[in-house]
Amino acid sequence: MVKVTIMGALRHAIDGKAEVEVEASTFKELIDKLSAEYPGLKPQIDRGVSLAVDGRIYREAWLTPIGEAREVVLMPYMKGG
């Protein structure tokens, strides 16, 4: 199980909690499971999210392994100039 920190504005979709535990080994598995188990998260996931895994931010790298991660944070999709 991976413990995922969810950004504040999405916590309404996970009963107000700050973290959820999900059985997932990759970025893709994680967002699929989150969408399935917490449908309130799906619109944001469909629009785009980034994932921080042990301090590194990933935007679209679905195959990134997260099974051994100490910290996983679901973030907004990064943009820049």
């Binding site: 950004m7 921080a52 042990d54 301090g55 910290e71 944070v73 973030m75």
Partner: peptide
């Protein structure tokens, strides 16, 4: 100051 290991204000721990 934030440093290596700081949990940032946006939730990610800095390298």
């Amino acid at each position: 100051a934030a440093d290596k290991g700081t949990k940032s204000s946006y939730g990610v721990t800095f390298e």
